[in-house]
Structures are given as structure tokens and as C-alpha cells.
Simulated scan of single mutants.
Amino acid sequence: MPASDASATNVKLSCRGLWKVFGEGTRRFLDRHDLESRDGPPGTAELAAAGLIGAVRDATLEVHDGEVFVIMGLSGSGKSTILRCLSRLIEPTAGELLFEGRDLLAASEAELTEIRRHKMGMVFQHFALLPHLDVLRNVAFPLEVQGVERARREARALEVIELVGLKGREGYFPRELSGGQQQRVGIARSLAAEPDVWFLDEPFSALDPLIRREMQDEFIRLQRVLAKTIVFITHDFDEAIRLADRIAIMKDGAIVQIGTPEQLVTRPATEYVAEFTQDVARAKVLSVRSVMVPGPIPNEVAGELPAAARIAEVAHRVVRAERPFAVVEADGRRVGLLERDAVLEVLAPPDRGAKAAP
């Protein structure tokens, strides 16, 4: 998916200096520390010494309107906790949280309930479908909770059921559906209320690999149609690469780097990020723009390639062609050449572990 231009989009959801600390005496501990001091906030060792767990530590991020923002990390890194803080399913310990410019931490329970019902959609790893309701009534359930009259809510439910590819199964019960179909019902239910922000917490991780790939394809299709603002949690970097505009990598409750997939792979900010991304197939991440030769374009070229395309998408054409390709930006400008050797270098990079010959 194309990386979004942060400068050209509005911030939909953001947090600054967000903390979620578990354990007794949390408030007393934090009161003794200046979380914005020049010496930096307390680390994991200091928290552990006080018998506390810093599930989210000093997290700052912005999610822009219409982008897919993926938060990823290993188990226990804090990615699911920060998602629940962003939606206020759990209360942050400290920090700022803004939704559409509004202080979400200042919202009352009644206001928060209304925001969740009308502005936020959520999909989790476990489908949590109501077993006694068929597909139509499962999908319509959030609208029923809102008090939408039956004809309207069922009409809307039928729309999203068709959108996720389940038309004809409206009368099926969850037990009569495959795992992938059940997840589609969960997705349809979360979309029924037309949320402004869509939270997905490892929604495909419980699925078999083939079904998971199918659901990723479905997710990409839906996003092209709906252009939702999405916060997506995963521990799978390949999945993140396929889906994300930008990615935040977490470690021990802290965000260590935010960037496009290409930025994380080519310019890792820390050794941890470098290790995290070292086995990623670079052809899936690197754009044509990143490996082209800028400058004038000769008259004789094999054709044109979009600058934003991934190398994996165009490699077969470039490798087989006798001439280089012109690289074209979205506005039609020719900005450089993509040559065969540059593509081969991405497909078969030098062995990092190999020693130079004497």
C-alpha cells in the first residue's frame, strides 16, 4: 500500500508521553519522577525495582486521516496495551490522548460510550460472535445497541455483509462458518456503524496461513474502497509490510522507531530495529524510486514504471528487458532510470557474512 504523506493529511488520533504502568504504588512512584525531565523517564529496570510493569512507556505517535498505522513488536512489547489505551478500553496512567483534536482523557463515561458507538470500530483476534444470532443479526447488533430501528439496521448490515463477501450467508450461524468467514463477520460488524477510526488487534493471527493471506487481500480491498483511519496490531513484519502506510516498532513498552516500511529497513534507528528487519525480503519493501538512477532519460527505454511501485512487483519485467525503464512519478514526470543491475542487487544482495577474498 502506498505510504501516506504525513504533511498532507490531518491528524486523526494522537498521544504524547503516554504511560500505562501496572502495580501497586504506581501513582506514588510517578509522582516522585518528572516524566519529562532532561534525564529521561524511568526505565524498565527502575520500574521493576519498584515492583511495577511499564506496559507502555512514554509513547508519542500521530495517526493521520485515512492511513493504515501498524504497531508491531514481539510478545509483551506493549502493542496491544497501547491500542487499548488509544481507545480508552483501559485507562492510561499518564500522558495526553487526542481524538480529532479533542482531549479523550477528559471525556466522561457517557461521552466516551457515544464516541465508541459512533466513531470507533474494533476487531480482535477472537471473533466474539454471538452464537445464538445469525450473520445478519450479529452484524446488525452494534446498530441495535445504538437504538437504530430494525429496517435501517438490517439494510445497513446487508450492505456490509456484501462488502466483505458474505452475501448469501445472512441466515448462517457462526458454527456453520469457517474461521475466515467468522472473521469476515467480525469485520462487517465493526464496520456497520461506519466508524471514523478502525482498531484491529492481530485480527488474522489465529487463521491458517492461506486464509490469513486471503484476509489480508480482503483488508487491502476494503481499505481501497473505504479509506478508513486504521490502527492495526501485528507481530508479523511481512503482514505489516503488506498493509501499512507507516509502522511503529515497540520494545519493552516503548516506541523505538516510526516510519514507512522502506524507512525502517533502509534506515533503522537502533540495532534492535536493524535486527527486527534484517530478514525481510528487501524487494517487497524497496520502491523503484529508492534504487533508480536520477537524471535525464534517453529516448530508447523499455517502458515506464511507477516510482512508488515495489521492486518485487516489477522485477520480472526489468530483468527480462534489454533496456532500462523510465521511472515516472504520479504526476507523469519522468524522474530517473531503473536498470537491471540495480534490481538484481536488491534480489540477490551480497552475503553479509561472507569474507572478502585475500
Rank of each mutant, 00 (worst) to 15 (best):
S37Y: 09
V63E: 00
A302M: 09
P131D: 09
F22D: 09
A356I: 13
A357Q: 14
A94I: 08
A308P: 00
V135M: 04
T234E: 04
F124N: 06
E313N: 05
S80F: 05
L47Q: 02
L207E: 03
M250K: 02
A244W: 00
L177M: 13
D208E: 03
A269F: 03
L222F: 05
N138A: 12
V280D: 03
V301Y: 06
M72S: 04
H316W: 15
I255T: 05
A326G: 08
D5N: 15
E313M: 07
G101C: 12
F237D: 01
A59D: 05
K20M: 07
M72Q: 00
G101F: 13
V145H: 05
A192L: 08
A321L: 11
E144T: 15
L143T: 07
A281N: 15
T93R: 01
I115R: 02
M122K: 05
Q181H: 10
R57G: 04
W19C: 01
G295Q: 11
P174C: 10
L337G: 02
V335N: 04
V70K: 02
E271S: 12
E100A: 02
L13G: 00
F237L: 15
R323V: 09
F232N: 01
M215L: 14
A49V: 10
P268K: 03
I211A: 08
S87Q: 06
L166W: 02
A50V: 14
A55R: 01
A94W: 01
G17C: 12
E202T: 02
T26L: 04
M120T: 00
A94V: 07
F276E: 06
I53C: 07
E345S: 14
L344H: 13
I220E: 01
F199Q: 06
L177R: 00
R32Q: 15
V335F: 11
R246Q: 10
F127S: 02
S7N: 13
P42T: 04
K251S: 14
D31A: 13
I220H: 03
M120H: 06
L18Y: 06
K228N: 09
A357S: 14
A206I: 10
Q181E: 15
G179D: 06
A342H: 06
W198P: 02
P203R: 00
P92M: 10
G168Q: 12
I115T: 06
A348F: 15
A227E: 14
I211D: 01
P268H: 01
L305T: 10
L344N: 14
R282H: 11
L61T: 09
G73P: 01
F173V: 04
K355F: 12
L143W: 04
P306W: 02
A227D: 14
R242E: 04
G78F: 03
E239N: 04
E67F: 07
F22S: 11
F29A: 06
A254T: 10
A155F: 11
E194A: 15
L89R: 07
V225Q: 15
A157C: 13
A8S: 12
A128F: 08
E262M: 15
I115Q: 01
D341Q: 15
V11Q: 00
P324V: 12
T277V: 12
G23D: 09
R317K: 15
E109L: 14
R212M: 06
L86G: 01
H126K: 13
E91K: 05
I230R: 02
I187P: 03
P92I: 08
R333V: 14
D31I: 08
V139D: 04
E36W: 00
T81H: 01
T270D: 13
